[in-house]
Nucleic acid binder design. Structure first.
Lengths: 143, 143
DNA sequence: ATAATTTCTATAATTTTGGTAGAAAAAGTC
DNA sequence: GACTTTTTCTACCAAAATTATAGAAATTAT
């Protein structure tokens, strides 16, 4: 159905929580879970992915928690979403032409490639800082 | 993982096969399956969706087969992909804000909405005719 | 009637998603 | 050094979606 999973959605929201406190304090998993209404157990699978991709730093033990490794304006949404959802090609053959013998003569592959690149570019042009300062007015409807 | 399913991929390829013969002859499911290397049985689930969405016309019985209902330059990829994959919002709350009480104050929702719209617009601007005449040179790599 | 063709209903295997449970590892505090 | 807090890892599991297959019914041309 071409959907972003809870991993991507929850993970992005977690990043936003951590970013909110950038420069102030480390943020606890527990607090992210509470503020965002997400199961603590489930979040504890998602957040380590953000760390292993170098987007956040974790401190264990008392006084622990999470911090950004870089200021929010140096982190793009592409990095975040890719860390959580994997490579953003909409069909496998875009990134790995070998999976299909027809790859180099397939007109539909070109479409999926183009579409993937549009998506990527859009995500690359938005930083976590942009997201933080974004106004939320639910104007026009989706169409 | 944000991927297009076989339904979307096979279905688009089927449309291309039918479009190839637009104005000439009706195309058989059997032939589409053979030309595209797709299971006939499986395709026979996918193609009716294209018909119920008004993109193709089916004739049953001997001398049957499929035809476009409109010339290829009047069919957009948005229509095709939406017929196969369902509405193209990347998260549910974009199209149905009621599914989440936080929708109207959620900064991440705005991102998913923007992204969905970018995707839509791109697909809307490509017609089946464009796809037909597209050159396939596998130039630059995905990055 | 018969042959060709699409379409519908039912079933099923496999994979992905969305979790839960519990223990281990690390670090600060008393 | 024991204790508490906190992240992280391993294992498991249920539900849903994906990717099909089988077979029969419906439709149409000859």
């Amino acid at each position: 159905m071409i959907k972003v999973s809870t991993k991507g959605r929850y993970g992005l929201r977690a990043m936003l929580e951590i970013a909110k406190n950038h420069g102030k304090r480390a943020v606890l998993l527990k607090d992210i879970a509470k503020n965002q209404g997400i199961s603590e157990k489930y979040l504890s699978h998602i957040i380590p992915q953000l760390r292993s991709h170098g987007l956040i730093k974790a401190n264990r033990g008392a006084k622990g928690g999470y911090m950004l490794t870089r200021p929010p304006n140096k982190i793009t949404l592409r990095e975040i979403v890719e860390a959580l959802e994997g490579p953003l090609w909409l069909v496998e053959c875009v990134g790995a032409p070998d999976v299909c013998p027809m790859s180099n003569s397939c007109k539909t592959r070109n479409i999926w490639k183009r579409l993937s690149q549009v998506l990527l570019k859009e995500l690359e042009n938005i930083s976590l800082a942009d997201l933080l300062k974004a106004e939320v007015k639910d104007g026009e409807n989706y169409q």
